[in-house]
Design a protein around this nucleic acid. Sequence first.
DNA 1: GTAATTGCAAAAATTTTGCCTCATA
DNA 2: TATGAGGCAAAATTTTTGCAATTAC
Lengths: 136, 136
Amino acid sequence: MSEETAFRMTEQRRAILETLHRVRTHPTADEVYAMVREELPRISLGTVYRNLEFLSPAGAILRLDGCGSQMRFDGTTKVHDHVRCTSCGRVDYVPGIPVTLKKTHPTVNGYEIIGHRLEYLGYCRACKRGRKRRTP
Amino acid sequence: MSEETAFRMTEQRRAILETLHRVRTHPTADEVYAMVREELPRISLGTVYRNLEFLSPAGAILRLDGCGSQMRFDGTTKVHDHVRCTSCGRVDYVPGIPVTLKKTHPTVNGYEIIGHRLEYLGYCRACKRGRKRRTP
DNA sequence: GTAATTGCAAAAATTTTGCCTCATA
DNA sequence: TATGAGGCAAAATTTTTGCAATTAC
């Protein structure tokens, strides 16, 4: 009854995974491609993209998708946080949530800190409904 | 001595600004284009991009650039935060910063919350140096 | 052996630019 | 009227996809 999703650990997949586990730079797909190519010169960029796409929902890697792949804009310049629906990408305001964020660390890890961004992740009303229907 | 940066408030710029001030959806450039086009059908997508680019550093709008325009990946799946250099885009880990984040709000604004993302913004060591040199 | 996965290359999607015209200040 | 800004279309970037050939299991 339970169809195992058969997946294979190819050289390429292993190399991508190892590379991501080794570096601390949070590389872009392009950068991963360049790094893995030193070990597997014949790997293609498409394969890198497909594997990143595959490994991320599998929980093997993290995808720092700030707000999906497109940039988003906001007419309100006063400080506020956001909630983003991880299912449909919708972004909304989070008004006045009592987040106690340690006032400021002037430097962190060598960085001169000028601010922070807090984003909640979840399911919006519409997707919540959709998900409920789909999940038995 | 102080050269005023002369800029003009064109119809297009005003329309883009008004649109962003009116909606709460954090639209993408494409979506802004579609919305503004209802008022100014002859506006071009290039103009929208140029204005978003212009208005954002001017402080008139906010640009939710999660991690720049490219996606980034991370081999560490255990929970941690990030610092991003707003100058060069570099992203690093932030290990064990004592952030006191209110445990959980199960729902926020209708969203079922499953997590959050905290990102510090600042200047990395290299850019800090560069910036100092440039700023008299 | 079979089907998941790759390489390649073309297509799609998103963003930036050049160039000439228009119109704000 | 001088020049910042717009329109248009081409180019540059980034990501996705179709398909035949490979290869892990």
